[in-house]
């Protein structure tokens, strides 16, 4: 099956800073993919490139074999996009937003949109600026879905939602995925909420793609190895060591394995997806990524007097 989204040497530069560098990625059609990375990793840039809001500095990005920024009239009808903070025209009513969808999209499914809005209990006569944040996100999602896209791109869709609204949002999304089999790519800086809905993982950090693959494969490949304190050089020649930590007597590694571990001095443990993501993101922090000065240390400690 041809990929829904494919990039080769994709790079994007703003002035002197590279937002994305040399991204090689191929997202198979029909997947629900999570694009995970810390703030400022280039997630939004990547999604904007995919929907043609931005043009690559070098390299290419193709959606269903077409270039979004140079062939917008072919590809725009096939992409549903919900930007960060799910922008809507604040003065428009829900009814107006549906008309907008219908006027601007040849494949717009008005009946579906109305049915979804009704099911969600969103009053069509109310102005979008007066809806709650969760409802606004829902309206934006309903609009994007009613376009009947083949690829749905969601930029931090859950960031501004409370837990209940998150669940509702993901429920709407998954219902649509089950019905239509569309490909979804959604970005987030956390993996927790997405683990249940996504089957594909892309880790983006410090403007590079760190990892991309089927979540089951990722879980299978990654192991935590615990053994007596030692240098992991021998192991690193076969497998990829993502994270290393030493105590006085023991060494703990997070490894992307490349086959079975034969060295019996290691105790092999399964790892959670969250730990894998954190290990990849942490790799970059030691690689020179700086935290902003004045930001509180994320160790969760408090001094009790």
């Amino acid at each position: 099956m041809s990929p829904a989204l494919e990039t080769t040497h994709l790079s994007k530069r703003y002035g002197r800073t590279w937002a994305l560098q040399e991204c090689e990625l191929s997202l198979p059609a029909g997947r629900v993919a999570a694009l995970v990375g810390p703030n400022g990793a280039g997630k939004t840039t990547f999604l904007h490139l995919a929907v043609g809001l931005l043009q690559p500095t070098t390299g290419t990005i193709q959606v269903f074999g077409q270039h979004p920024s140079t062939q917008p009239q072919e590809i725009l009808p096939r992409i549903g996009f919900v930007a960060q903070d799910h922008p809507l025209y604040r003065g428009f009513t829900g009814e107006d937003m549906l008309t907008l969808g219908q006027k601007l999209n040849p494949r717009f499914d008005d009946r579906l949109a109305r049915a979804r809005m009704q099911k969600l209990g969103i009053p069509l006569q109310r102005r979008c600026g007066k809806l709650s944040g969760g409802q606004q996100a829902q309206v934006a999602l309903v609009l994007a879905l009613a376009k009947r896209p083949d690829l749905l791109l969601l930029d931090e869709p859950l960031a501004s939602l409370d837990p209940l609204a998150r669940r509702e949002f993901l429920r709407t999304l998954m219902a649509a995925v089950v019905e239509t089999g569309l490909t979804v790519l959604l970005s987030s800086h956390i993996i927790g909420d997405l683990e249940r809905v996504c089957d594909y993982l892309i880790i983006l950090s410090a403007s590079h793609v760190q990892l991309a693959g089927d979540i089951q494969d990722v879980l299978r490949a990654h192991k935590r190895l615990i053994g007596p304190r030692q240098d992991a050089a021998a192991l690193a020649s076969v497998h990829t060591v993502v994270e290393t930590s030493h105590t006085q007597r023991q060494t703990t590694l997070l490894v992307c394995t490349n086959g079975p571990i034969f060295d019996t001095s290691w105790e092999v443990q399964e790892v959670s997806l969250e730990d894998i993501v954190l290990a990849y993101l942490g790799k970059q922090v030691t690689g020179g990524l700086q935290t902003s000065p004045g930001a509180p240390e994320p160790n969760g400690m408090e001094v009790v007097q």
Binding site: V51, G52, L53, P72, Q73, L76, P77, I79, F81, A83, Q84, D85, P87, L88, Y89, R90, L100, G101, L104, N105, P106, R107, A140, K147
Partner: peptide
Amino acid sequence: EQGTHRLAWTQSVTR
């Protein structure tokens, strides 16, 4: 300013 260009430009109409 309001970010709505991202909504308008990602419908099926070219910008």
